[in-house]
Amino acid sequence: MYSFNYSKPDTIEAAREMMRSAEDGIYLAGGQTLIPAMKQRLSAPTDVIDLSSIGELTDIDVSDGRVRLGALVKHADVAGSDAVRSAIPALADLAAGIGDAQVRNRGTIGGSVANNDPAADYPAALLGLGASVHTDQRQIPADDFFVGLFETALEEGEIITQVAFPVPDRAAYAKFPNPASRYATVGVFIGVRDGVTRVAVTGAAPCAFRSAEIEAALNAEISARSLDGITIGADDLNNDIHASAEYRAHLVTVMAKRAVTALPK
């Protein structure tokens, strides 16, 4: 790997200061995307600012109808948390299906969300549950956070501190994983809360999105049958060696049906 400067600040303020003084800085969380990207020189920062010593970012708190995950909470910790599993089993299951065991032991929710990979799992959960992203500056609703391909609403130097999920009445996630990477070829997260159904799709398009058509159908009746006849347009969907846009469009309704079927009664 090429050379870079490394620092490990203890506080958010110190991290921001280091980012301000860096020529081209980047924050390091679990590093499961950043380090491979740096090896391939897809990312070539001058300064890597490691957030792992900021203790307040690793808390898991389940109370007052919310699951609050610190930005540095690892996927394995979400998957293995009894508190998370009893509040939002679909979220624990989603975390248990990210990448592989070694990746889950290092990768963090804050890193995943900040990276906004089009095939990442967490963006679907944030959108499907109506979560909010807390930063050192503000709170950003998930609906406003995921802006485009690897692009988020985060400003330069802004640090995610926590992701807060309102506990739904019911939720489920169904994903068609790429068999090699376990990234979502298409994944659909459905969250039902106070009679309102949210449907979020990842893997299909350049950025995770909510499907208005599927939400409308499920808000009329929550059943796999109510999705019969719904077709998703392939025009803006991803088309690559793993799956054509048309195939992904088809998978969206298939995964949505599977998620509906998997909703707890």
């Binding site: 490394y6 380090i35 490691d50 065991a101 990746v103 032991n105 290092r106």
Partner: peptide, 12 residues
């Protein structure tokens, strides 16, 4: 915990 040591910096 099992990790991929090619994807962890020694400083980490």
């Amino acid at each position: 915990r099992a990790v991929k040591s090619c994807t962890v910096l020694a400083v980490q």
